[in-house]
Structures are given as C-alpha cells and as structure tokens.
C-alpha cells in the first residue's frame, strides 16, 4: 500500500509541476500578447478578440494551478483553532477537512463536466468581435478540478496513514 501511495504522490507531484509550467507559460503569453497589441495598435492594427483570449487564458491559469497550490498547502485558511490543537487532534481535524474538501471539489468537478459538454455541444462562444469558443476554458476547469480532487484525495490518505501509525503506536 505504502509503495502505491508514494508512487501516486510522486506522479501527482510531477503532474503538478507540469501544470504549473503550463500556467507560467500562459501568463507569459498574455503578457507578450497584450504588449504586442499596445504597440501594433499605434499603427492602427489591433489584435481582435485579445481581451477575450486573455480571459480564457486566465481561467485556465486559475483552475490548472489549483492542485499544485493544494499540494503545497497554499490555499489560505484561518488556522487559529488548529494551531491550538494537540497534534493528533490536528490530524483528525485535517482528515475531517480533507473529506469535506474532497466532497466539495468532486461535486464541483462533476458539475464542470456537464458544463463543458453542454458548452461544447452548443458551440458556446464569447461575446466579442471575433468568434472565440468557450469550451477550452471549460475544459481547463474540468482538468484543473480533476487533479485538484486527486490531490485532496492524496492528502486525505496521508492523514489516514498518520492516524493509523499513531494509533498503532499507542496500542502497543
């Protein structure tokens, strides 16, 4: 069991790294495109649909980055109470929270699939001067939330492992 867990963890770590790389690249792309547009507009040529493209990219950055942020425990919380708890209770609280998170993000993920499919089928586009499809953004939501849920699951398993080790120790 431990082997599989460690293996999954390192795979997720790798995926998160790649996702972060993609997000970074996307940010870089927005930056360059917007700057190029400023320059080209001075010559009377504006890139049509650029603001919408930037929005699409932003959505991708936001969702694709969720799992790495989760991996590094960077989702902001108010940890006043947990800091006062003894370590075993801390882990129990964390277990409880991770179960809640897993339910929530799985629910969110489930919703995003339907949203993506209907957007794709209806050929949903942004309201702009050029036709930019919405489905890539919605696909990014699906992918981002999928890995987010997996990452939470791994954290949850980690909590269970810590708890079972601890109870094993106290039983002994």
């Amino acid at each position: 069991m431990g082997e599989i867990y460690r293996f999954s963890k390192s795979i997720m770590s790798f995926i998160n790294d790649k996702l972060a790389e993609i997000c970074g690249f996307l940010l870089f792309a927005i930056m360059i495109l917007l700057t190029v547009n400023v320059a080209s507009r001075e010559f009377g040529i504006a890139i049509p649909g650029l603001t919408t493209t930037a929005v699409l990219i932003l959505i991708a950055v936001v969702y694709l980055g969720q799992s790495r942020t989760e991996e590094h425990d960077e989702h902001a919380n108010v940890d006043m109470v947990t800091n006062m708890l003894p370590s075993k209770w801390k882990t129990l609280n964390s277990l409880f929270i991770n179960i809640l998170k897993l339910f929530t993000i799985s629910f969110f993920f489930y919703g995003s699939i339907g949203s993506f499919i209907s957007s794709y089928q209806a050929n949903e586009i942004f309201a702009d001067v050029v036709k930019i499809p919405m489905w890539p953004a919605k696909l990014a939501i699906v992918i981002g939330l999928f890995f987010f849920a997996i990452q939470i699951l791994l954290k949850l398993i980690e909590d269970i492992r810590i708890l079972s080790k601890k109870s094993w120790k106290t039983n002994k």
Partner: peptide, 27 residues
C-alpha cells in the same frame, strides 16, 4: 475614419472597418 473606435460585435467591427475606422476591442 482613421480613428480608434471601440466596436462591440463582429457586425459592428465589419461596419467600422468598411467605413475606415480602426476598430479596437476594449472591455
């Protein structure tokens, strides 16, 4: 004509281009 104008739809974009303005997309 020749000025930067904001257009809000593809149909308006085409009209502006046709007339000779520079359509710009500003949110």
């Amino acid at each position: 004509i020749g000025k930067d104008w904001r257009a809000s739809s593809r149909w308006h974009l085409e009209s502006m281009k046709h007339i000779g303005a520079n359509p710009v997309s500003v949110p």
